[in-house]
């Protein structure tokens, strides 16, 4: 199948061209952004390097800087409820990955991520949802605190 290209406007990188297969569908949007359905992940630092940018494909303004939670705390163990699984159309064997949304203040060293409410992406079906975990993870987890004197 040919990859269909489409152009979208981004908050931070102007107009970019993306493949439609890279579009991720959020059937319920994100919390406080319930009406946005389609997002793309942009990797300005290179493939597989975080942070990445989660950009709305419908509106250039909503854009989030996202990290890989497993790079922040090694034993991160999100557990999906049945409702969470249903929201991303999960079936056994589907490949999942997680992102957490960062709040980047003027002092970048004080960046925090929301570990309590990760975004779970079903890579197999290109669907995603922001979920709230039962486990007691921090909503404002400072990502640079382990580096001490850094």
């Amino acid at each position: 199948m040919d990859t269909i290209k489409t152009k979208i406007k981004t908050r931070d990188f102007g107009e970019i061209e993306i493949s439609e297969k890279d579009m991720i569908l959020f059937p319920s949007g994100l919390f406080a952004f319930d009406d946005l359905r389609n997002f793309v992940i942009i990797s300005p630092l290179g493939e597989g390097i975080y942070p990445m940018w989660l950009q709305s494909a419908e509106d250039e303004k909503p854009c989030f800087i996202v990290y890989n939670p497993f790079e922040i705390i090694k034993d991160y163990s999100p557990r999906l409820s049945a409702a969470d699984k249903k929201s991303i159309d999960f079936s056994d064997g589907d490949e999942l990955f997680y992102l957490v949304i960062a709040v980047v203040p003027t002092d970048v060293k004080r960046t925090t991520v929301n570990l309590k409410s990760p975004i779970v992406i079903n890579r197999t079906k290109s669907t995603a949802a922001q979920i709230i975990l039962d486990e007691s993870y921090d909503i404002k987890f400072p990502i640079f605190r382990e580096k001490g004197a850094d």
Binding site: R11, F31, A32, F33, V104, S117, Q130, I132
Partner: peptide, 27 residues
């Protein structure tokens, strides 16, 4: 639930555009 309220607040804050110097720093 409180965590949902807090997450909405965090999401709104997180979506704010970054000043150019912060953006350059991050990159």
């Amino acid at each position: 639930r409180e965590e949902l309220f807090d997450t909405e607040k965090q999401n709104r804050e997180a979506s704010n555009a970054l000043p150019k110097d912060i953006m350059d720093k991050l990159l």
